[in-house]
Design a protein around this nucleic acid. Sequence first.
DNA 1: ATTAAGTTGAACCAATGAGTTCAAATGACC
DNA 2: GGTCATTTGAACTCATTGGTTCAACTTAAT
Lengths: 215, 215
Amino acid sequence: MSSSGTTSRGRIDKRQAILEGAFTVFARQGYAQACVQEIANEAGVAKPTVYNHLTDKATLFKHAMEAGARTALDDRLAALEPLANPAEDLRASLEDVAHALLRLHTNERSCALRRLLYSEVTRFPDILDIVVESGPDRLNQALADRLARLTLAGRLRATDPDLAAEQLMALLLGPLEARSQLGTRTLEDTELREVAEAAVRTFLHAWGPDTRERS
Amino acid sequence: MSSSGTTSRGRIDKRQAILEGAFTVFARQGYAQACVQEIANEAGVAKPTVYNHLTDKATLFKHAMEAGARTALDDRLAALEPLANPAEDLRASLEDVAHALLRLHTNERSCALRRLLYSEVTRFPDILDIVVESGPDRLNQALADRLARLTLAGRLRATDPDLAAEQLMALLLGPLEARSQLGTRTLEDTELREVAEAAVRTFLHAWGPDTRERS
DNA sequence: ATTAAGTTGAACCAATGAGTTCAAATGACC
DNA sequence: GGTCATTTGAACTCATTGGTTCAACTTAAT
């Protein structure tokens, strides 16, 4: 690995650059309108090199989407981390995590990824397994785990953590679609905060501990 | 207009057929992959006729989208109607309306429309005004109106009907995205019922009248 | 019957873009 | 310095497709 490690160093770098550039161009133009030459330019590489690493425009697309989705998922999972040991103020912790999720969900790359996913899901059914199943599903599951812990600790009365996670995510992300005009308008940070607060408020109304919550 | 009325009868029919066929083909292939010849075939019409009625592929697309979106919105608004004078059992009424909305939201044409919208919104920013603003926005507003009435009648304690409507819609539609695999899997009617019930339950927890609701 | 509007099919043009070929250049490793 | 894998740029092939043209045809109104 030592010798071939340095030898393939250039290779692996080129491949990374190609996938990176491919995602950028696909995000900007859509699958059909994106041309391979432009991807090569974006990656600072010659056209035959692209075909050397990735046989097809189609497989190029799939790998670029897979890479983009993986990093997006990693970011989201990391944002969930603070819920492992929440502060004394549960509401504040939830709001912070919610806000972080909204920030991630509304950034440029996430919106582009979602757009590409929606538009090409019928022509590339296999990216669905990689991206969706390993995307929202895994995120939901991770969130459900956290909520289950919180329930055991007596800080929530969620009877079904999976359902609770699903609905919390819905309350967070649902309002974004309309407000951000399907991701074309960038939302102010204060507006994200607003949505996060409202979602957590409603969530705690329904799933929170059995106190006399006032509106 | 009486004479030209019958004369243009054929014209208007052709135009309708073209828009209809265009939506079908765009839904199946996406904007870029759809070719005008195929649209003409689908509409049972010659290619120059298409260009005779609609100058461009682009304007053809816009008009097809607009028509598709308009009927989709009309259906949804009609489904909201029963909330005007709800039965004695508010929960049941909400669940029925919710279920109807979910059915409309998951049918073939709606999914295709959403897909096309997401994929082409960057290349056709003007369809956004027609479709989005006159889509979810108007639906939200209509729902908020109903909820406001219910609040005045003392059957809800929604302080902000707009927010309540937004969150109810989020609770309804959010879970669909993951469950239907972005609209590629068709959902059983019982699963839709399940989602509707869960959404209404949580909604009433948070916004319902001030009773001792049990889980 | 005549006219006029609209439709049809087929052929045509021009542009675009995927994928390939190849000789020259690069650069790491011995 | 020599060797080998990889990269590069440019030219090339070939299929697709948007949009046009045109002469023949339908159809309804006068």
